[in-house]
């Protein structure tokens, strides 16, 4: 059973790589990608911690609800571990 995760729905101002349209949405981890420097520190010239990064797959139905163009089509995005809640 794939790991199910939800993107945190917080909306801090500033440079964040979790797209707004995916905040609060549930998907599953398609594959782990390794650890990368945290862009939220790199963007401000700070020394960056390495953060695990995952490709998370969502259905269009989950993202857009009844407005989905085709509910079973999917969207993959790369989301850092600190933006994910395990379900």
């Amino acid at each position: 059973m794939a790991d199910r995760v939800r993107v945190k729905s917080m909306m801090p101002p500033g440079h964040v790589r979790a797209p707004a349209y995916l905040r609060g949405k549930t998907g599953y981890i398609e594959r782990p990608l390794g650890a990368f420097g945290n862009p939220e520190q790199l963007a401000y010239g700070l020394k960056a911690d390495k953060k695990p990064l995952y490709r998370v797959r969502f259905t269009m139905a989950e993202i857009w609800g009844d407005d989905a163009e085709n509910p079973s089509d999917t969207l993959d995005a790369e989301i850092y571990d600190h933006w994910l809640e395990r379900l």
Partner: peptide, 12 residues
């Protein structure tokens, strides 16, 4: 001298 993240932050 900078990071791509710093560039994106400035763009945003």
């Amino acid at each position: 001298l900078f990071t791509v993240d710093g560039l994106r932050r400035a763009l945003e």
